[in-house]
Simulated scan of single mutants.
Amino acid sequence: MAILMHKIEQNGRVYAFEFDGRGGLLTVEKIALTNDAKIGVAREYAVLLKLDSAVLPFQVPRVVNFRDSKQACMLCVSAADSGLSIHDKSKGLPDLLFDAIASLRPMDFPAVLPRSTFEWFDVSLERVTNPVIRRVAREITSDHMFAVCAAHCDLGSENVFSNAEVQPENPKFAVIDWELFTETAPAMTDRVGFWLGQHHRKFKREIGAWDSKVAASHFLNTFRDAPGGIAAATLALLGLLNMGNDLAERLCGVTK
């Protein structure tokens, strides 16, 4: 058993890892110590129960145990299969994976929604100081219609595992940490989140960090020809900003 208390003050969680006798990881347990962390862990538990019956082209953690008390909320899940390791984000992700997550939107949920539906938009826009992003966002009218779908919302972190390095022709994937999953998000959310994660080092290097205006130009050029274009990508970016995504904050010029 190994205990990880990295950033415990920041995220209010302790992680416990169970190994077999040969050092193989068996289970991962999240122990939430704050109210916000408890809400997130309980939300992930509910999501994983729903996903247990879903047919997906990637592995999802299986719930082993869940306990909720006044002191803590604990969720124990199965580890990713042996042979899978943290996916190299520079290799990208197959459309099949993005599309499978997006398809988890219930059929009776709307497929398009006006910008006015996203109540966080105006609040997020007020926080944006990067003029490149702000200029695009301000051109999005309240009645502008956007495609919506289900989204993991945290693919840019190290939450995707694969064996793509050893089996590039037929890779297997696993996706973990479903706390932020939502059934109705701007359609480009996961693609934008993954793009941010791909450029993590450029944003956070101590010397020569990516200038936010330069980064914004790269961002808009990347998504200019994507479905919905730069407006859809910017809406997704502001949604991630609203969720507290630190790379979205940097791209938007938010300082703390």
Rank of each mutant, 00 (worst) to 15 (best):
R62S: 14
L241W: 08
V64F: 07
N163M: 10
A185K: 00
L84G: 02
A32W: 00
L26R: 14
M107P: 02
A72Q: 13
A147T: 00
S82M: 14
L220Y: 01
G197D: 07
A37V: 04
D68K: 15
L237T: 05
P61A: 06
Q59T: 11
N35A: 11
I207N: 09
E183G: 09
M74R: 15
H152S: 04
N242I: 10
A80F: 06
K172A: 11
V148T: 06
K70Q: 11
I31F: 00
V64E: 14
D190Q: 01
E119R: 14
G12R: 00
F203P: 03
A236W: 00
R43H: 15
S78C: 11
R67D: 06
V136E: 06
T222C: 13
K30F: 02
E158D: 15
R250Y: 12
N159D: 04
F58K: 00
V60C: 07
D154F: 04
T129M: 08
R105N: 02
F181V: 09
W120M: 13
A32Q: 03
S69V: 08
E183P: 01
L48A: 01
T255E: 12
A54C: 05
S162R: 09
D225N: 14
H199D: 05
H200P: 01
D81C: 05
E249K: 11
P110N: 05
D225C: 11
E183N: 09
L56K: 04
N65K: 15
Q71D: 15
R115A: 09
K91H: 13
A216E: 07
H218L: 11
I207R: 10
V77T: 12
L75M: 01
L48S: 07
T255V: 14
C252N: 06
G92C: 08
Q198A: 07
N159L: 04
E119M: 09
H218K: 08
N242K: 07
L25F: 03
